[in-house]
C-alpha cells in the first residue's frame, strides 16, 4: 500500500499531473469524454449482457451479437481507460484515498474476472447454445453479474466526487 501511495505522490508532483489539474479546459473535456464513452461502452455491453440473459436480440446468434458489437465496445473501452487514467493522473493521492474509488477498483477487477470466467467456461461450449433464444444458466449468470458489477462501477465512480468519508491516506 505504501508503495502505491509513493507512486501516487510521485505522479502528483509531475508536470503531467499538475498540467491536467491546473488547466481550465483539459479536466472538463476529459471528463466529458469519460461520460460519453461510458454510453458507448456500457450501453453496448448491456445489449450483449442482455443477449446472454436471453432478453434482447434473441433471433441473432450469440456469437454474431458478440462479433458485431465487440469493435464498438472496444472503442468505448479504450476511450474510457485513456480518459479514466488521465482523470486519475490529475489528482492521484485524492483518488487513492477515496473509499469509493477503491470500491470501484475492486468492481473493475471483479468485472474482468467475470468476463474471464465466461470466456474459459460456458463460452467454450458456445456451439451447443449459440442460436438458442434461451441461454444456459452459466451464461445468464455471467450476463447478470456483468450488469450488476458495471452498475456498481458507475455508481461508485460518480460517488468518488463526494467527500462523505475522511480520506484513507
Amino acid at each position: 500500500m505504501s508503495t502505491m501511495l509513493s507512486f501516487c505522490q510521485w505522479l502528483a508532483n509531475t508536470p503531467f499531473s499538475s498540467g491536467i489539474r491546473e488547466s481550465t479546459y483539459i479536466y472538463p473535456v476529459v471528463e466529458s469524454v469519460h461520460v460519453l464513452s461510458l454510453c458507448m461502452f456500457i450501453g453496448l455491453l448491456l445489449l450483449w449482457d442482455l443477449r446472454l440473459l436471453g432478453i434482447t436480440l434473441r433471433r441473432i446468434a450469440v456469437s454474431e451479437v458478440w462479433a458485431r458489437l465487440i469493435p464498438w465496445i472496444t472503442v468505448g473501452a479504450v476511450l474510457m481507460v485513456i480518459s479514466g487514467l488521465l482523470l486519475f493522473a490529475s489528482d492521484p493521492v485524492r483518488f487513492f484515498g477515496n473509499i469509493f474509488f477503491r470500491v470501484k477498483a475492486v468492481g473493475l477487477f471483479l468485472a474482468l474476472l467475470n468476463a474471464l470466467a465466461f470466456h474459459l467456461g460456458i463460452e467454450r461450449r458456445i456451439v451447443e447454445w449459440d442460436t438458442s433464444a434461451i441461454t444456459p444458466r452459466a451464461a445468464k449468470f455471467a450476463g447478470a453479474a456483468s450488469i450488476a458489477l458495471w452498475a456498481a462501477i458507475v455508481v461508485t465512480g460518480r460517488f468518488v466526487a463526494y467527500n462523505w468519508f475522511p480520506p484513507l491516506v
Partner: peptide, 8 residues
C-alpha cells in the same frame, strides 16, 4: 448508459 446503448 442504457440510453447510450439503445440510441447508438
Amino acid at each position: 448508459a442504457v440510453i447510450g446503448g439503445a440510441v447508438l
